[in-house]
C-alpha cells in the first residue's frame, strides 16, 4: 500500500497553532480583566494540545493506552484552570494544611 503524504495536513496544523498563539497574545493584551478569560484560555490550551496530539503524534492511530494518556494530559490543565478560576477559594481551603 502506498504511503500517504501528510505534508498539507501537518502544515495546516502548524498554521492553526501559530494563529491560536497570536490569538492568545491578543487576549492577554485586550481581555486581561474579563471574567471569562480563563474559559477561552482553557479552550485554546485544549485545542492546541489536541492539534499536536492528532496531527503531529497521530494519536488517533496510536495504541489505545498512548491515545488515552494524551487525552488525559491534554484535558488536565484546562479543567484545573477552570476549577481554580471559578472555585479558587474552595481549592485554597481544601489545599490548606
Amino acid at each position: 500500500m502506498p504511503v500517504k503524504d501528510h505534508f498539507a495536513q501537518i502544515t495546516a496544523a502548524w498554521l492553526g497553532l501559530v494563529a491560536l498563539t497570536l490569538a492568545s497574545l491578543g487576549l492577554s493584551e485586550w481581555a486581561r480583566d474579563f471574567a471569562w478569560l480563563p474559559l477561552v484560555v482553557a479552550a485554546i490550551m485544549w485545542i492546541k494540545g489536541a492539534i499536536v496530539a492528532r496531527c503531529f503524534i497521530e494519536a488517533q492511530v496510536a495504541h489505545p493506552f498512548i491515545a488515552r494518556v494524551l487525552q488525559v494530559f491534554i484535558a488536565v490543565a484546562p479543567i484545573a484552570l477552570i476549577i481554580t478560576a471559578f472555585f479558587g477559594n474552595t481549592v485554597a481551603r481544601w489545599a490548606s494544611v
Binding site: 497574545l25 487576549l27 492577554s28 490550551m45 494540545g49 499536536v52 503531529f56 494530559f73
Partner: peptide, 19 residues
C-alpha cells in the same frame, strides 16, 4: 519533542496570558 511542545503550550498561558 511533540510531548515537550504540548507541555509548553500549557505553561505559556499560565504565565504570559492569564493575569
Amino acid at each position: 519533542w511533540h510531548a515537550t511542545d504540548i507541555i509548553w503550550l500549557v505553561i505559556f498561558p499560565f504565565f504570559y496570558v492569564l493575569a
